[in-house]
Design a protein around this nucleic acid. Sequence first.
DNA 1: TTGAAAGCGGTACCAG
DNA 2: CTGGTACCGCTTTCAA
Lengths: 279, 279
Amino acid sequence: MATLKDVAALAKVHPSTVSRVLRSVENVPITEETRKRVIAAAKSLDYQPDQRARALRLGKSNTIGLIIPDISNPFFAEIAKSIEQESYDSGYTLVVCASNEDQEKEIDFVHNLISRGIDGLIIAPVQDSYEHLVDLKKRNYPFVLVDRCFDEFETNAVVSDNEAAAFEAMEYLKDLGHKRIGFLSGRSTIYTIRKRRQGYQKAVDLFGLDKDDALVSAGGFTFEEGYSETLKMLSLAHPPTALLIAGNRITFGALKAFVEKGLTIPDDISIIGFTDSIV
Amino acid sequence: MATLKDVAALAKVHPSTVSRVLRSVENVPITEETRKRVIAAAKSLDYQPDQRARALRLGKSNTIGLIIPDISNPFFAEIAKSIEQESYDSGYTLVVCASNEDQEKEIDFVHNLISRGIDGLIIAPVQDSYEHLVDLKKRNYPFVLVDRCFDEFETNAVVSDNEAAAFEAMEYLKDLGHKRIGFLSGRSTIYTIRKRRQGYQKAVDLFGLDKDDALVSAGGFTFEEGYSETLKMLSLAHPPTALLIAGNRITFGALKAFVEKGLTIPDDISIIGFTDSIV
DNA sequence: TTGAAAGCGGTACCAG
DNA sequence: CTGGTACCGCTTTCAA
């Protein structure tokens, strides 16, 4: 890698001059002569300024970090994609890290990214704990939460109204005539899941639907778990006639279970799933 | 952010001493006394070494970059996930960038990442051009290609045998009795696509299947394009009885077309798709 | 056993 | 208009 010095030597000027020419900002006047020489030298050496040195000096890196629980989940991948687009267009580089739903790793990433001098942080937290975030807030470090947040901990966050959405879905199913509706979801420590469940419960109470603990499952958010939990629910003495499913992979698991049981949608059973993939 | 100096001041020692204590490597002897004081000071200030300064000094960042064409494509998301795991376990941080199938952006990322001082680069190239990669090779910069590579340009690459896979799929369809098989894919500049197509052609020739340009489409790799291309192929005078599809989103598009046409699998039509999502 | 100083590659301020 | 210099935060000789 060519450095400022190399370019300076080739152009027979001082490094600081090269810096000025290349950034061209500042109202500093420069002879057309020198400018040409410098530019030529830089091009011939294919000079690229070292961003870490720059960042070190400037205290700004034009980089932001994104921590998501699972990059292979289409929902988060889509989030990552849009954020990436947006940052790129604004001249920022996005660093994507996947915590893999591992709280330790998330905390690790937070520290790691900060020590790399990123300008800001976007986190979809694992949500087993949040002290590290409290810490960030105390230090006034710029960060936002996406998709999931904490009721007990106030921060900047962009989340959707999962409770309302779940409630509306339930209302729709009720209007179809369903009285016995099951709820399938992942770990209930997760904000989105809790909210959806609240919407579910609210609807059950308000519409006088069947209230039964066996109809509520929070087994996990994988394909396999969705599959097995659905089977379990279908083999109840009084199985549900409809399902509200919070999680896209769970939904596919449920579909597999239906196929296996010979059930068809919407004749034998109705479902509404929270998912945003193209399928 | 607390710096070495801050810690040093608090512990009443020289910064260099703090550095030595904290890295604890080197066979440099240190009084237990001082060590204790330094550790305490560092902890109380929650000191995290500045990685960019460190990288600048050391000439090594323990970071590797990954450039993929599309993060929202499950195939690449899965690749990103495994690489991330692997790097994390080896103490490396992975920076993921999405070129969005945009050659310009890819080149941009390559330069950007290098100037950030990453130790190595993994690229699934867009494949419209490769001069920037030739450049990397000339400069002896450590990089590998994944999934896609160039026949005319030799590099380290990890790719699967797409040609053989396509051929085997065709053999399978032929054994089912199909004579007229269509091929649906994305842009044919892409390595994987080209190889699969070669496998397809080889099978058509070798097994004496129907050879018809109308049966081969390279429209694009999106859901919508898969949908419209399938419709187009189904409305031929002699439509295919089976389809080989290279691309997971195209496959879903094709499925949509089937549903719309009232065709069922495998009664009315057979398909084999290259895809790795759970669906 | 610890301190002082140089330098990684830039930027910014002050001189001239 | 351009050069010199200090410094960002850290590591690494070299001395003491």
